[in-house]
């Protein structure tokens, strides 16, 4: 464990806590893409299938449980909570996310560390996570001004993988034979997808203005 990875995990955790706060405090999920939440639930379920077979550390196991449980709770809340689900922007959240699942699965079958069930699921989760934010970014562009908590949620979610890139650079220089090229390339793509969001988020912070993404 290094400071970049720990900071990345904490930033990821904060993004989930901010989203939970937004939904709990406002009893609304307006501006949140349910499709992105469903994709993230799939990412965690596919990536953490080894939660019961591979024990890495108490920290690792607890964080996996927290990520799976919180994301499933958010999806359930957006689908099943009688108050929250009324505020879901169903007509704006129209990204064809099934294509993202299919493309990630095909790519995982072609490019993986080893042709085993677990490795292919892991690669699938890595590729899917890289594009999981797309429905959310499209929804933000369509929904005009973005409330603060939603903007902070997306910001922290984008920042965490950027910190992981620093972690991979650090591990590359400090650990012999360290190679995470699938996660690294995918992480670079993932972080790059946030580039314009980060730009407009910085502008809104600098000008102390409401965050607004151009349509």
């Amino acid at each position: 464990m290094n400071i970049f990875r720990f900071a990345g995990d904490m930033t990821h955790l904060i993004s989930i806590l901010v989203l939970l706060l937004k939904i709990y405090a406002t009893k609304s999920c307006s501006g949140i893409s349910r499709k992105t939440q469903e994709l993230y639930a799939l990412v965690f379920l596919a990536r953490y299938v080894d939660i019961f077979t591979e024990f890495i550390s108490v920290y690792n196991t607890i964080m996996k449980i927290v990520f799976i449980a919180s994301t499933l709770a958010i999806v359930w809340c957006m689908r099943g909570h009688r108050v929250v689900r009324r505020s879901y922007d169903k007509e704006l959240d129209t990204f064809r996310h099934y294509f993202l699942i299919a493309a990630s699965l095909v790519l995982a079958l072609l490019v993986h560390e080893k042709f085993t069930f677990q490795e292919i699921l892991w690669a699938f989760s890595i590729y899917l996570e890289a594009v999981a934010i797309l429905p959310q970014l499209v929804l933000l562009q369509r929904s005009g001004n973005v409330d603060n908590l939603t903007g902070q949620y997306v910001f922290f979610l984008g920042a965490y993988r950027g910190l992981y890139i620093l972690n991979w650079i650090y591990r590359y220089f400090t650990e012999p034979h360290f190679s995470r090229w699938i996660a690294c390339v995918s992480g670079l793509v993932q972080t790059a997808l946030y580039a314009d969001f980060f730009y407009y988020y910085f502008l809104s912070w600098k000008n102390n203005a409401k965050l607004k993404l151009p349509a």
Partner: peptide, 10 residues
């Protein structure tokens, strides 16, 4: 290719 390493990252 390289053997599958333990996935110690989240």
């Amino acid at each position: 290719g390289p053997s599958s390493y333990p996935k110690d990252e989240l």
